[in-house]
Design a protein around this nucleic acid. Structure first.
Lengths: 336, 336
DNA sequence: GGATTTTCTGTGAACGTGCACACATCGTTG
DNA sequence: CAACGATGTGTGCACGTTCACAGAAAATCC
């Protein structure tokens, strides 16, 4: 009953107890010819000594870890607010899980983190990576490229050529804006956000497409983040500048929720006075009143597709397409 | 210019190029006596061959990984909705980052995940773990205990004795309910949630404490999750059962936000007709109108404290207290 | 009944690193 | 000048596993 067991037990211990050699123990674990008698003795011995394989040693010789990194590189506030990231992560986790891979999520929140994560990737802890919202000149991107680590980006790829999955932000933005116009709105504005990223610029471009020659730059307000607070502030400024506004396309549901609050503060009724549409179909969309009309961005699907791409590369399948675009149906609810 | 480099370069390559032995290369990396000439030659060689230490090999011999797991075990919906988890995670990440440890987040979303994560921990990928919302009979808890892995739980500890950090849920619930009563409310109810967990039961106990002999079990509605949807449903049922209700303590801000929606649907004004308080002081609290009075749960602080505890254990410091309780000031806003 | 295949097992060599040890060279000291 | 400490370097072993190989025993075939 002495619970000593200072040292972890190894294959050697199992072999000694079972009265066989290391090789045979390895074979019962990894497959190969082994007699029933030996197998039974070894399985008993494994239980007896409480043996668990040391994965570091296994990885060292196998040159793979059965783990894939999920790297998220977002400013503090967005990470906490944006339910999309969590959904993408769960999608990735589930897809990897089914292939018996371990997802390892790494958060980059400072320059220090960036360098440490790059080191981590270099260190051979993972076989591949799914990267959300990468920056182009990132040490992480560099490390990934140099190591030729199988990778899939969620969102537009940076300069390096690599697999990626995304949605047609521009087309979806055009569609949803068009439907807003078709309901009779004549003064339609936009709250554009995150213009330092392709998703931000593409959504703005889609809005511009839809308006055509009716486009009025006075009706566009730009903010840095896909956040509730930025949405609320932008809406207030937009109303001050264009009181006759009767429609708004918000670059994300969080932004739309903030805008909704600002509209109510200003005494406007939604959708009677002003129609508003969002983007993402995140949990925000059904939590506001009225509920948001929005673009359904299949966040979990994005995560799963990225994982599938990495897994395919790990299988040595180079044939897959570089870019995968998922569908984004418009969900029509009450806000417009 | 041939970008071949099929194989990763090792210390041997560096040593060969620099014209020294492996040992000397190891010394310039890990410290020790080495001449200026040799150091310079080796540093040049490292750059020339693009050498990066193989961490798996290093871990194998050093028996540590400089990484700590952050394990989150939550049902799908809560994970996406609850900003607390993200905040705890960022707190942990920051504290570990400062000590040059890599945080590795593992998500448990299915039984399959549970077993794989237990294997991962067994495999020696990490030196310790911070665990959020563990279940008592969990294979993960078992694995952690058997491995004697340095660990800190966020929230009440399970049966095993181990370090943990948390808040005084009962005391805070009592405080916030008391202040609700002091503003003249006479029919105060509660939406209790997550009674399968200590945080859930403790908050209910605090509420009961505060009411004393004024407690009326008709005014308590129980729901499974700390979620917006559960809050909205519970509020509707509570109103149907007790139309004269004039105060509500919701077990979390998300629940309170849902309840707020249901109150508005029912035509009640907040705080005039009904006062409501939440718990967490998460981003929900400032996003509703009116903004929520609530208990400030220092989520990032919890994550940081848990990380600090694990780091202390890694330093061999066994003296730290088993349980750490952080302060939870009441934040008074407009909803009550 | 010998040749061949199938089944089973043990041994040695990796994987890439860190560390203890031995050894060599210097300058200093008594 | 012998003895010593400080500085610099190379070699062997260990970490715990997998895998290739060789060889033994059993089963199958012509």
């Amino acid at each position: 009953m002495t619970p000593s067991a200072r040292r972890r037990s190894t294959v050697h211990d199992v072999a000694r107890v079972a009265g066989v050699s290391r090789g045979t123990v390895s074979r019962v674990l990894n497959g190969g010819y082994v007699s029933d008698a030996a197998r039974e003795a070894i399985e008993d011995a494994i239980r007896a000594v409480g043996y668990v394989p040391n994965t570091a040693a296994r990885n060292l010789v196998r040159q793979r870890t059965q783990a894939v990194a999920f790297i998220v590189h977002e400013p503090h506030a967005v990470f906490l607010e944006d339910p999309n990231i969590g959904a993408i992560m769960l999608g990735t986790n589930q897809a990897l899980s089914e292939a018996d891979y371990q997802m390892v999520c790494l958060v980059v929140d400072s320059v220090r983190d960036t360098e440490r994560v790059a080191r981590y990737l270099n260190g051979g802890f993972v076989d591949g990576a799914v990267i959300v919202s990468a920056r182009a000149q990132d040490p992480i991107t560099t490390a990934v490229a140099r190591l030729r680590l199988p990778v899939a980006y969620v969102g537009h790829p940076p300069d390096v050529d690599a697999a990626w999955v995304g949605v047609d932000n521009r087309g979806a933005a055009r569609d949803v804006t068009t439907r807003l116009l078709q309901t009779g709105r004549t003064r339609v504005g936009m709250i554009a956000a995150a213009l330092d990223r392709d998703s931000g610029t593409d959504r703005l471009a889609g809005f511009t497409d839809a308006l055509g020659d009716r486009f009025d730059s006075d009706l566009v307000e730009e903010v840095p983040l896909y956040s509730y607070a930025d949405g609320a502030g932008a809406m207030a400024r937009l109303l001050a500048r264009a009181p006759d506004l009767d429609g708004v396309f918000a670059a994300s549901d969080a932004v739309a929720a903030g805008a909704l609050w600002a509209l109510r503060e200003a005494g406007r009724r939604v959708p009677e006075d002003v129609g508003i549409v969002g983007f993402d179909n995140s949990s925000w969309a059904t939590r506001t009143s009225p509920q948001l009309s929005t673009v359904d961005q299949p966040a979990e699907g994005l995560g799963a597709a990225a994982a599938a791409s990495v897994l395919a590369q790990l299988q040595g399948d180079e044939s897959g397409p570089d870019g995968i675009i998922l569908d984004t149906p418009v969900v029509w609810r009450d806000s417009a």
